[in-house]
Design a protein around this nucleic acid. Structure first.
Lengths: 154, 154
DNA sequence: GCGGTTCGACTACATCTGTAGACGATGCAC
DNA sequence: GTGCATCGTCTACAGATGTAGTCGAACCGC
C-alpha cells in the first residue's frame, strides 16, 4: 500500500500555513490567485508560492485538478483538522500545571462568537461535572489537591 | 544593539521543547540529569542532548552557572510564557470560523483541574458580557452566525 | 600526580524550510 | 501558426533542525 496520503500527515511549516490559509479561505484556487494574494500579503515572489504549493501537494494537504495548462488546487484536509493536530502538539508541550493558564490565555486573546462561547461553556460545565463525579467515588481523603497546585496570587 | 536576549525570542523546535520540558520540570538541572531523563524518555544519546542544551542557551531559553567542570542549567523563560507564544502562533493560523472549534477541541482534550475550569468559566462569562454589550447597541437578529466578531471601528 | 569519567565546544551530515531563479511545456490572442 | 504569458518542475542555496561523534579540559578517587 502506498502511503501517499498518510493517516499521520506531516506538520505544516510556517510558510505552508500561510499558503493553506489562503487556499482554505478560497476553498479552491488557481495558482495565479494564490500568487496574487500571497504577493500582496507576504510580499512573496510567485516562484516562492509555486514551491510551497508543490510541497503542500507532496505533503498531501492539497489536491489538484488539471485545468488548461495549470491546476486548480483545493485542500484535502480541513483547516480545523489541521489546527487540531497542531493544537495537540502544543498541548503535548504543556507540562504539569500549565495547561490551564495556557487555555486561559488562548480564550482571553481569541475573538469568539456568542455561539462559540456557549459551546465552551457547556463543555466546561460537563468537565466540571465529570470531575466532581470522579472525585466523589474516589474517596481518597479530603486533601487530594491533584498534581497541579493552585497558584494563587500570581 | 545586541539582541542576545531578544524580546522576541525564537520559537522552540520539537526537540527543544522536549529538553525544555525536562528542565522546566526540574527547575534546574546538571547536564547529566538531563541526559539521563532524555535518554530514558526519548532514547537520545548524550551528545544529542548536549547539542540541544547548547542551542537552547544560544536561543536564550536556558542560562547557566558554572559548577565544577560543568554547568547548572536553568530556564530563563517560564514554560507558560513560551507556551503562550506558541499558542499565539497557533491562533494566528486559525482562519475565520475555526477559532471556536479549535478551542473547543483543546478544552475537550485537556485535563484540567476544577480551578482551571472555574477560571475559564469566568473568562467566558466576561467575554459573553462584553459581546452582549457591544451587540446591544447594534441590534442583531437571533441568527448571528458570524465567525468574526463585529468589532467597532478600531 | 595519574587515570578514568564527564563536561562543554566543535564538527558532521542528512533533512527540512524559506525563498527564489531557470526552463521547457502549454495555452491564448491575434 | 507565432509570440507572449503562465504553468509546473527542477535546481539552488542558505539557514534551521535532528541526531550524534570527536576531543581537549577539568574534575574526582586514589
Amino acid at each position: 500500500m502506498a502511503d501517499d496520503e498518510s493517516n499521520v500527515p506531516k506538520e505544516l511549516s510556517r510558510s505552508e500555513w500561510k499558503v493553506m490559509g489562503i487556499v482554505w479561505s478560497m476553498q479552491k484556487a488557481m495558482a495565479r490567485e494564490v500568487y496574487t494574494v500571497a504577493g500582496e500579503q507576504f510580499d512573496w515572489s510567485p516562484a516562492t508560492v509555486k514551491t510551497l504549493l508543490k510541497r503542500l501537494v507532496d505533503k498531501g494537504y492539497l489536491k489538484t485538478t488539471q485545468v488548461g495548462n495549470g491546476f486548480v488546487y483545493r485542500p484535502s484536509r480541513t483547516a480545523i483538522a489541521s489546527l487540531r493536530s497542531a493544537a495537540d502538539t502544543l498541548l503535548s508541550n504543556a507540562i504539569d500545571g500549565t495547561t490551564g493558564p495556557l487555555l486561559q490565555h488562548m480564550v482571553k486573546s481569541s475573538s469568539l462568537t456568542h455561539d462559540d462561547l456557549d459551546e465552551l461553556q457547556q463543555l466546561i460545565e460537563a468537565k466540571k461535572n465529570a470531575l466532581a463525579k470522579s472525585a466523589g467515588n474516589q474517596k481518597t481523603g479530603p486533601n487530594q489537591k491533584s498534581n497541579t497546585q493552585k497558584r494563587r496570587g500570581s
